[in-house]
Design a binder for these strands. Structure first.
Lengths: 207, 207
DNA sequence: CCCCCATGTTACCGACCGGTAACATTTTAG
DNA sequence: CTAAAATGTTACCGGTCGGTAACATGGGGG
């Protein structure tokens, strides 16, 4: 307990000026904790506290914890798809370049990640109920992403696009898990290398 | 409530003859539920019930839920390493054959798995605390397994064993996650195909 | 200035969970 | 058969969690 020596009224709230809106603050705090401690391992109270607010206000923005989870997942997915859009704009008409650049970005994210794998992957593992809205959103996103890779492989002239796309996706997804036992940096580098190899091999074949 | 028409005393317990010992029954029941509903999503009471016993007895075999989790994980890992041992006996002195056969077995397991990914992978995602005993066991196992793959790649004469091993591991781990959006069967087949390709390419190069 | 609306505070609810105690019952071994 | 060991039954504890009610507060715009 803090005693108030100088007779100033004990303001428990510092007049912090928050730049980002509350809803978003809650979302990033939730994301942080979900990722670090697991979705089920963190309570809404802790989230509110981390967002420098309280449970009641949190529930004024999100009807339930499940909705909060879902919105968080949606946000991550939206960010990823934004990334794809940016990428396909930069490498317009160059499907091989898109695949390579995507692997480079994955590698960069791996490098910046200490332990604790992919947030989306973990969330998927933590939500067994196939009817959970967040899970549905993730499932749809995975399908979209895989289709995108298939399309790119087709456009790049790979002789068996479905096969190559599956190969890409397997490696992209597996890199996170593999990184925990061999180091994220190395895994990232090897990921980029093998994608480059595949692209070069395909080009050579095409000539 | 069952009424007892013929005056026989209402035995609430059917004299079920259990063939497998209780401890193991608890472990398989726990494994089932852990895998289907997530580790944190299932309570010890439900596990005891599924094992046709009760919470008290469960706690006579396992000091805590965490210990139960750990023993379950240990069991899965032991089973997997048993599998490796059997495989290396059958393909003694044939590292390429071992890699191929391993991919075949993974494919078979994928085929037999409806949704819900790898139990070990999910458990890893569900236990964020790096000091959790189960997590430690899994981490050590992953390292051992990866070293084994590196050794096999070296023995098989791959020019860059670390690279090839990472490639293998990435695909092996990623297959489960990828399978949920493209079908386990196809992923399994493609996994086997790419491993075969790698081995054949390496052989051709070696000649 | 005053009112309104967003936010903070506190207290609470019911449900569930991990874990334990005490005792009853069944099974097994000698 | 009998005693001991294993298993079942019930009730309970403390704690946490998701979620809500009621009310206080404070700041910004008319």
């Amino acid at each position: 307990m803090q005693t108030d020596i100088h007779g100033k009224r004990p303001k428990t709230k510092k007049p912090v000026r928050h730049t980002i809106p509350l809803r978003e603050r809650i979302l990033v705090a939730a994301g942080d904790l979900f990722h670090k401690q697991g979705i089920r391992g963190v309570g809404v109270e802790a989230i509110a506290e981390a967002a420098q607010t309280n449970k009641m206000t949190l529930y004024r923005y999100f009807a339930s914890k499940d909705e909060l989870i879902t919105e968080w997942v949606r946000g991550m997915i939206a960010h990823k798809e934004e990334d794809w859009k940016d990428l396909s704009a930069r490498f317009r008409g160059d499907p091989e370049g898109q695949l390579q650049e995507w692997s480079r970005r994955i590698a960069a994210k791996l490098r910046a990640m200490e332990e604790r794998g992919s947030a989306l992957g973990n969330a998927f593992a933590e939500l067994p109920d196939p009817n959970h809205p967040a899970r549905r959103v993730m499932q749809e996103h995975k399908v979209r992403e895989h289709k995108r890779v298939v399309r790119l492989c087709k456009a790049a002239g790979f002789p068996d696009p479905a096969f190559s796309a599956n190969l890409f996706t397997m490696m992209l997804e597996g890199a996170h898990s593999c990184g925990t036992c061999v180091g994220m940096r190395q895994i990232g580098e090897h990921l980029v290398q093998v994608v480059n190899l595949m692209v070069e091999n395909n080009r050579r074949r095409a000539i």
